[in-house]
C-alpha cells in the first residue's frame, strides 16, 4: 500500500498488473463486457462452450488487428478510412503471388510492404500536402477498391498449390487456440508497450493533444503522423493475410466496410476522436464487446439486417457518451 501511495505521488500511477486493473476500472468498459457475457450465458448456455468462444475470439482478432492500427491514427486526431480497401488489394495480390508460385515468406513480406506503402501514401498526402485525413483516406478507400478490382479482374483469386500450406495462418491452431488469436494478442501487446513506454508512443499522444505545442516542443509531427498511417496500413495487410488464408481465396471485395467496424470499435473502446486520449486496452475490450454482441444476436437467431441496426445504435450511443464526457471536461 505504501508503495502504491508513493508511486502515485511520484508520477505515473502504479505499474504492472495493478495499473492494467485501474485502467480497466476507469474505463468501466470491462464491466460492460462482463455484463454482456452474463447476458449471453443466460440467453444461450452454449455461449461459453469452447467452440463458440473460439468463434468469438476469431472475430475479435480479425476486427481487432485493424482497430489497433486505427487506434494509433485516431490518437493523433486523424482517421483512416482506407483500411478496408487495403485489405482488398493485399488479399488479391497475396493470392495471385501465391498461385504464381512465390514462396510463402516472400509473399507475406511483400504483402506487409504493400500495406505500408498504402499507409505511406496516406501519410504523404496528409503531411506533405496538408490534406485532411478524412478526405485523403477516403480517396485511398475508393482508389484501393478500384485497384483490387482491376488487378483481380473483379474475380476471386485462388491460391493454387500453396492453399494447404498457407491455411495455418488463418485456420490453424497453436496450443489448441486459433492462430489469428495469437497474432492479435501479439499485436495488441506490442502496441500497448509502444504506446505506454516508448518515446514514440508519447509523441503520438502529444501530436493528438496539441499538434502546434508538439511542434514547438521539438517533436517531428510529420514523421509521427506518417508512422501511424504506415502502422495502420501494415496491420490492414496482416488482416488481409489472415483472411486469405482462412477463406483459401483472395477476394477483391475483402475487407469491405472494415473501416467502419474498426472506427466503431476504437470509439467504443474509449479512444477520443478529439485525439490524445485512449489506448489499446480500450480497443481490445471494444473489439470483444462488438464480437460478443454479434454472437448474442447470432445465438438468438436474429437476422443480419437487424444486427446492423443494433450495431449502428451502439455506435451512436458510444459517440454520444464520448461527446458527453468531453463536454464535462471542458
Amino acid at each position: 500500500m505504501a508503495d502504491m501511495a508513493t508511486r502515485q505521488e511520484m508520477g505515473l500511477a502504479p505499474g504492472g498488473f495493478s495499473r492494467i486493473v485501474t485502467v480497466l476500472q476507469s474505463l468501466g468498459l470491462f464491466w460492460v463486457l462482463v455484463a454482456l457475457c452474463a447476458v449471453a450465458v443466460y440467453l444461450s448456455p452454449s455461449f461459453f462452450q469452447f467452440g463458440n468462444m473460439m468463434n468469438v475470439g476469431r472475430q475479435v482478432a480479425l476486427f481487432g488487428i485493424v482497430s489497433i492500427g486505427m487506434t494509433f491514427v485516431i490518437l493523433t486526431r486523424g482517421i483512416d478510412l482506407s483500411v478496408g480497401s487495403i485489405v482488398g488489394v493485399v488479399a488479391v495480390s497475396t493470392a495471385m503471388l501465391l498461385s504464381a508460385g512465390f514462396s510463402i515468406p516472400v509473399v507475406m513480406g511483400i504483402a506487409l510492404v504493400l500495406g505500408m506503402l498504402f499507409g505511406a501514401f496516406n501519410g504523404a498526402g496528409i503531411v506533405l500536402c496538408g490534406m485532411p485525413p478524412f478526405i485523403m483516406t477516403l480517396g485511398t478507400l475508393v482508389m484501393g477498391r478500384g485497384i483490387a478490382m482491376t488487378i483481380a479482374n473483379g474475380e476471386p483469386q485462388m491460391l493454387g498449390e500453396a492453399t494447404d500450406a498457407f491455411y495455418f495462418l488463418g485456420g490453424g491452431f497453436l496450443l489448441g487456440i486459433p492462430v489469428p488469436i495469437w497474432i492479435f494478442a501479439f499485436v495488441a501487446l506490442v502496441a500497448f508497450v509502444v504506446l505506454r513506454s516508448t518515446a514514440f508512443g508519447r509523441q503520438v499522444y502529444a501530436v493528438g493533444s496539441n499538434a502546434e505545442a508538439a511542434r514547438l516542443a521539438g517533436i517531428r509531427v510529420g514523421a509521427v503522423l506518417m508512422s501511424v498511417y504506415v502502422i495502420s496500413g501494415m496491420l490492414a495487410a496482416v488482416t488481409a493475410l489472415i483472411t486469405v488464408s482462412r477463406l483459401t481465396v483472395g477476394e477483391p471485395t475483402a475487407g469491405s466496410n472494415l473501416e467502419l467496424e474498426a472506427i466503431a470499435i476504437v470509439v467504443i473502446g474509449g479512444t477520443s476522436l478529439f485525439g490524445g486520449e485512449g489506448g489499446v486496452v480500450g480497443t481490445v475490450i471494444g473489439a470483444a464487446i462488438i464480437a460478443v454482441i454479434a454472437n448474442i444476436l447470432n445465438l438468438l437467431g436474429i437476422s443480419p439486417f437487424t444486427q446492423q441496426i443494433v450495431k449502428g445504435a451502439i455506435i451512436i450511443a458510444a459517440v454520444m457518451f464520448e461527446v458527453y464526457r468531453h463536454r464535462q471536461k471542458a
Binding site: G11, Q203, Y205, A206, S209, N210, E212, A213, A217, E277
Partner: peptide
C-alpha cells in the same frame, strides 16, 4: 494553445 498539452499529465508535459 501553443505551450502545454492541457489534457495530459504534469509528467507528460515536463518530459516531452
Amino acid at each position: 494553445t501553443e505551450g502545454l498539452f492541457l489534457d495530459q499529465s504534469v509528467a507528460f508535459n515536463v518530459t516531452i
